[in-house]
Structure formats: C-alpha cells, structure tokens
Measured scan of single mutants.
Amino acid sequence: EEWMVEKALMVRTGLGARQIESYRQGAWIEGVHFKRVSPSGESTLRGTTWYNYPEINKFIR
C-alpha cells in the first residue's frame, strides 16, 4: 500500500490525528508525503487527504 487515508496511517504508524496534522503542517511535503485529491481526481484543498506511507516511513527513519 503506497497511498492511504489518515485512519489507515494511524493504524500503521501509531500516530494520532493531532500528530499527523502537526507533521502535515510542518515537516511533511505536499505531493511527497501527502496529497489532497477531490472525487473528480483533481488536486484541491478540500479533497480527501492521502498519505504516502513509504515516504513517511523513510522520513521517520
């Protein structure tokens, strides 16, 4: 699984929702560690946020 939603990321990493938000707003790079995608497939600020687990795992190492 490369891309996953927040709940799956929480299960895989043990991070809480606030921790994920903090990383997203600070250290993680949009387009690398996470992306927002609307149902139409376009990038957007209001779409579902998807997280790239392999890239996040590399960051944590």
Rank of each mutant, 00 (worst) to 15 (best):
R61W: 10
R24N: 03
R24C: 11
R46S: 15
W28H: 00
Q19N: 04
I29C: 05
Y23M: 08
T48W: 06
T13E: 02
Y53G: 04
R24D: 02
F59D: 03
G14N: 05
E6G: 06
G16K: 12
L45Q: 12
Y53M: 05
I60Q: 04
I60H: 03
E55H: 04
V32L: 09
V37H: 07
K58C: 06
E42N: 11
E1K: 07
A17M: 09
E30R: 04
H33F: 03
E2C: 12
S43K: 08
R36F: 15
G16L: 13
T49H: 10
W28R: 00
I56C: 03
P54K: 09
R18G: 12
R12Y: 08
L9N: 01
E21S: 07
L45S: 13
G41V: 08
S40D: 14
S38E: 12
L45Y: 05
R18H: 14
Y53T: 02
L15R: 00
P39E: 14
E6M: 14
T48H: 07
L45E: 14
A17F: 07
S22T: 11
T48Y: 07
R46L: 15
T49V: 15
K58T: 06
A17T: 08
H33N: 00
E21F: 06
F59A: 05
Q19P: 02
Y23S: 03
K7R: 09
T44Q: 11
R12F: 07
E1H: 08
M10G: 04
I20L: 07
E21K: 10
G31R: 03
N57W: 13
W50A: 04
K58N: 10
R24L: 14
N52Y: 06
Q25I: 10
V37A: 09
T44L: 10
S40Y: 09
P39D: 14
R24I: 13
R36Q: 15
Y51K: 00
T44A: 12
G47P: 13
I60N: 03
T13S: 05
M4P: 00
W28A: 00
Y53Q: 03
F34H: 03
R12P: 02
E42P: 08
T49A: 05
R61N: 14
T49R: 04
E21N: 07
E6A: 10
I20K: 00
Y51P: 00
N52V: 02
S43C: 08
G31M: 04
M4K: 01
V11L: 14
K58R: 09
T49P: 04
F59Y: 07
G41D: 11
R18V: 11
S40N: 13
S22D: 12
Q25V: 10
N52D: 02
R24P: 01
E55M: 07
G16E: 12
R61C: 11
A27V: 11
Y53K: 01
V5Y: 07
I56Q: 00
V5E: 15
A17S: 11
Q25N: 14
S43R: 07
Q25F: 07
V37K: 06
W28P: 00
V37Q: 08
F59C: 05
F34N: 01
V5P: 13
Q19C: 09
G26V: 08
L9T: 01
S38H: 12
A8G: 06
Q19A: 09
S43V: 12
S22M: 15
S38P: 14
R12H: 10
M4G: 02
K7N: 09
P54I: 14
K35M: 10
R46E: 15
S38N: 11
R24Q: 09
E30I: 05
S40T: 13
Y51D: 00
W3Q: 01
S22Q: 14
Y51H: 01
G41Q: 08
F34W: 14
Y53H: 04
E21G: 05
P54G: 08
T48G: 08
R46H: 14
R61S: 12
E2I: 14
W50M: 13
L15K: 01
R61V: 13
T48C: 07
T48M: 10
R36P: 06
T44Y: 10
V32W: 05
P54R: 09
H33E: 02
G14A: 04
R24M: 15
G14P: 02
P39H: 11
R12N: 06
T44N: 13
G14F: 03
W28M: 02
K7V: 09
G31C: 05
K7D: 14
L9P: 00
N52P: 01
G26L: 10
K7F: 09
I60A: 03
S43G: 12
L45K: 11
G26H: 14
L9M: 04
G47D: 13
R61G: 10
L9K: 01
S40L: 12
R24V: 15
G41E: 11
S22Y: 14
Y51V: 00
E55Q: 07
H33Q: 03
G31N: 07
I60F: 11
H33A: 00
Y23W: 08
L45G: 14
R24A: 07
G26P: 01
Q25K: 13
S43P: 12
H33D: 02
L45F: 07
I56F: 02
E1I: 08
S40I: 12
G47K: 08
E1T: 09
S22H: 14
T13H: 02
F34K: 02
E1G: 10
F59K: 03
I60E: 03
F59V: 05
Y51F: 05
K58G: 05
E55W: 03
E6F: 08
E42W: 04
S22W: 14
S43T: 11
T49Y: 15
E30N: 05
R36H: 15
N52C: 05
K35I: 13
R61M: 15
Y53N: 02
E2A: 07
P39G: 12
I60L: 15
E55V: 06
G14K: 05
K58H: 07
S40V: 12
M10K: 05
R24T: 13
K35G: 03
T48K: 07
Q19D: 10
R24H: 04
G16N: 15
A17V: 10
H33V: 01
V32Y: 05
P39S: 12
W50E: 05
R24S: 08
E1R: 07
A8P: 04
I29Y: 04
Q25R: 11
T48A: 09
G26D: 11
Q19F: 04
R46A: 15
L9G: 00
V37T: 11
F59W: 15
G47L: 09
E1Q: 09
E2P: 06
Y23H: 05
V5I: 11
W3S: 01
T48L: 12
S43W: 03
W3E: 00
G14L: 04
N57P: 01
V11F: 11
V11P: 03
V11M: 14
L15S: 01
K35V: 11
E30S: 04
R36G: 06
E6W: 06
I29E: 07
F59Q: 04
E42T: 09
M10P: 01
N57I: 15
G26F: 12
E30A: 05
V5Q: 15
I56S: 00
M4C: 06
R61L: 14
V32G: 01
E21L: 08
W3D: 01
Y51W: 03
A27D: 09
S43A: 10
S38I: 13
W50T: 04
L45R: 08
G41C: 07
G47H: 10
E30P: 06
W28N: 00
S43E: 12
E55I: 05
A27E: 11
I56T: 01
A8Y: 08
L45C: 11
H33S: 00
T44M: 11
I29D: 04
A8W: 09
V32R: 06
W50S: 04
L9I: 08
V37Y: 08
R18S: 13
W28K: 00
G26E: 11
E42A: 08
E2N: 07
I29K: 09
E2V: 13
Y53P: 00
V11D: 14
V32K: 08
F34I: 03
I29H: 05
V5L: 15
S43F: 05
Y51Q: 00
E21V: 06
E55C: 05
R18F: 10
G14R: 05
I29L: 07
S43Y: 04
A17R: 13
W28I: 00
M4H: 02
L45N: 13
K58Y: 06
F34A: 01
L15C: 05
K58Q: 08
I20H: 01
E55D: 03
H33M: 03
W28C: 02
G47V: 13
N57S: 13
R12I: 11
G14M: 04
E55G: 02
W50V: 13
A8K: 07
T13D: 01
E42L: 08
M10R: 07
E30F: 04
M4W: 03
G14C: 06
K7S: 15
W3A: 00
G14Q: 05
W28D: 00
G41H: 09
T13N: 01
T13V: 04
